[in-house]
Design a protein around this nucleic acid. Structure first.
Lengths: 206, 206
DNA sequence: GTCTATATCCAGATAGAC
DNA sequence: GTCTATCTGGATATAGAC
């Protein structure tokens, strides 16, 4: 990468403190909600005064941006870690469960990444790049399962998102909706893969 | 009803002003987001000073409660206005479109009723009763369409909610997801009504 | 019911010494 | 980098006169 060199000890310390601040912020967000975190309380928890945070983040907006980026990067890596097996049902199921688990793991993170209801915050263009990376990878993975049309992907995005939202809203911490995922996968694939098959049959003998 | 009598002129004026405050608050919420409304700005827009609002609402929480109740009451009436035709696909389609339209009509209202991400606000028990009324009516309507099992209803709640959320998040003001509703209805009914039919066939000749 | 005045509390951000 | 001190601005809510 351009400009990347061995970090000095000072830079390492800086990065470590920055990470500590992020960790504490996620903890606080779990307690009070992602929209209600305050720089004062974050500073208190890391043992600093509130203005000192500005040596690590230029603003609260910048802190949200770092969290947004971190969340999307984690999601990207978890998606990459799923090796496609070739079986569409199995792959879609594993991807869906991973994504549902990721969202259930942290309500504030889910809200930050996908709901975007935090007063005054919108991701910067730079932070948004991390989100795009995940979207692109997911799109490729879904394509490989035979979901080649935009409309098929749109519907699947809605289905899975719906299960996740219903889970978070109506049974947080439980599994009443998450456990319907296999059934929803079957319903979806039953409808759309037969559609693809029908088209394939028309064109050529597979 | 108990204790209900003809309202005096004073009571009528009070109710009218209260409604005007609510109207202005919805307008403001459209502009700044439901979480960012302020009593000062609401008062300014109705031509009052901020403390005067307390003659109409006991607190900001109380104002949110009135909005929550109003939204759910509207939704209840719109649901009631849909006359069941007997055709499951048609009825589910009309219900779904109405519900999608209701949510698309007002993002703040949708967030207040279904997302519950407003810092510091949770509906009071009294306001929540309006939500329960709508849920009960919807459940009865879905039952009449042959969706008798809890799991079927859970899945449908997720599917429709997913379409609505994807629409709001990814294409606000458009129809990229809303227009998939007929297809999603067919996918859902294809999967679950055949399941019911199969059970019905086992039990008796229909 | 409406007003002025104010209590009380909180937030994010900046200046400048060390 | 971290601190103290402060700026600036916002919020909800209440007291009490009229």
């Amino acid at each position: 990468m351009i400009g990347e060199t061995t970090p000095t000890r000072r830079q390492e310390r800086h990065a470590a403190t920055r990470q500590q601040i992020l960790d504490v912020t996620w903890e606080l967000a779990e307690e009070v909600g992602i929209a209600s975190i305050s720089l004062r309380e974050i500073a208190r928890r890391v043992g600093m005064r509130q203005p000192s945070l500005y040596s690590y983040f230029a603003s609260k907006h910048d802190l949200y941006d770092a969290m947004f980026k971190q969340g999307n990067d984690e999601l990207f890596e978890m998606t990459q870690a799923i090796e496609p097996s070739g079986d569409a049902r199995d792959d879609l199921l594993r991807f869906s469960r991973m994504f549902a688990e990721f969202n259930a793991d942290s309500a504030p993170r889910s809200q930050l990444l996908f709901l975007r209801t935090i007063p005054g915050y919108e991701p910067s263009a730079e932070a948004y790049e991390s989100a795009v990376k995940f979207y692109d990878l997911s799109r490729d993975r879904l394509r490989a399962l035979g979901l080649t049309k935009q409309r098929q992907m749109d519907v699947w995005v809605a289905m899975l998102g719906g299960v996740i939202q219903a889970q978070a809203a109506n049974d947080p911490g439980g599994d009443r909706w998450v456990r319907t995922i296999p059934e929803v996968v079957d319903m979806f694939l039953g409808h759309y893969l037969s559609e693809s098959d029908a088209n394939a049959k028309k064109g050529r003998t597979k």
